Amino acid sequence: MIGNHTQVTEFILLGFSVPPEVQIALFILFLLMYILTVIGNLLIMSVVYSDRSLHVPMYIFIFALSCSETCYSLVIVPKMLVDLIAKVRTISFAMCGAQMFLFLGVGSANCLILQCMGYDRYLAICHPLRYPLLMNTRVIVWLIAISWIAGFLISLSEAAQILRLPFCGPNAIRHFFCHMRAVVRLACTADNTTEVAISTITMLVLASSLLFIMLTYILILSTILRIRSTESRQKAFSTCAAHVIVVSVHYTFASIIYFKSSSADTLEDDTLLSIPYTIITPFLSPIIFTLRNKEIKVAVRKVITKKVLSQKI
């Protein structure tokens, strides 16, 4: 698909336009955040897996989200950390295509899993009597599987359009990873149809997913407001709080990147604006779910207590 038209065999990642000493500081900061992100997500996954009381739809979806957040960070951050301290910041054409495909795929799957979590909360609060039937283990597995499959099908459609372009001239990517907008700008063609197409697909995925979640919460809010018991209302709100915060953070940062102007002058801004979306969001998600969820906090304390006691013995 790309063989006869591609002369570029590798790209140079320009990364951050900052002095070397600042790059060292960024390396330390991002490394600490990455380690905490991985530890936090692995802790949530191990807790949900080992504690049978958490084998319910809401926590299974949190497990799936933590898994996707870990993969999401793994695709971008290790390479970025190496480039921050390396003198040569190159990436092969094949690796760039793979990174772009995985980044777009996991990112799309993230949006769809968050959408499934909103649907789960809608069924739990608006249809509590039918909830066990509507949201059983088989349905959960199918929803998670469809989220991953659909996410990578979306990614395949976008990455295929980019990789079929001829790359025969400049090979310096103005970013710290193979961001689709920065890569498309290096193609040896004056036609911007591909950029418009992939931007449209990305914005449709984000907008449709966010609108679905907003619709579910409008229905949830209308149901909660009809509940007479104050305690029951507070409990219903608390089960949604962590998801609402994560959705707000995720879609705010994503919208800033993908709904902003795509003029050539904005590529430098894209590098800085991508930091919250690729590093801070995965870092905050496990913290939010742990701090805002009583059951997970109790389960985490149990795990830590068991490990401390076992070491003493």
Score class of each variant (00 low, 15 high):
N4I: 11
Q7I: 05
Q7H: 10
V8A: 06
F11M: 10
P19D: 08
I28E: 10
I35K: 09
L36T: 09
V38F: 04
V38M: 07
N41S: 10
I44S: 02
R52N: 15
L54Y: 03
F63K: 04
F63E: 02
L65K: 05
L65E: 06
S68P: 00
C71D: 08
C71Y: 13
Y72H: 11
S73G: 08
S73K: 02
I76Q: 02
D83C: 06
L84S: 00
K87N: 14
R89C: 10
Q99E: 13
L102G: 06
L104E: 06
G105A: 10
V106Q: 02
S108T: 15
S108F: 12
Q115M: 11
M117H: 02
G118V: 02
R121Y: 03
Y122N: 06
L129K: 11
L133P: 00
N136K: 06
T137F: 13
R138W: 09
W148V: 14
G151Q: 05
L153M: 10
E158P: 09
A159Q: 10
R164F: 02
R164M: 05
A172C: 14
R174T: 13
M180T: 13
M180E: 13
R181M: 09
A187K: 02
T193I: 10
I198D: 07
I198A: 08
S199I: 04
M203G: 13
L204C: 12
S209R: 05
F212A: 15
F212G: 08
L215E: 12
I218C: 07
T223G: 00
I224A: 00
L225R: 14
R226Q: 07
R228E: 11
R228V: 09
E231S: 08
V247I: 09
Y251A: 04
F253D: 03
F259D: 02
K260P: 00
S262W: 05
S263G: 14
E268Q: 09
D269T: 00
D269I: 00
I275F: 08
I275S: 02
T278Y: 04
L284Y: 04
S285A: 10
P286S: 09
P286R: 04
F289E: 05
T290D: 01
T290F: 04
T290A: 05
K294G: 00
I296H: 02
K297F: 07
K297H: 06
R301M: 13
L309H: 03
S310I: 13
Q311N: 07
I313K: 12
I313Q: 12
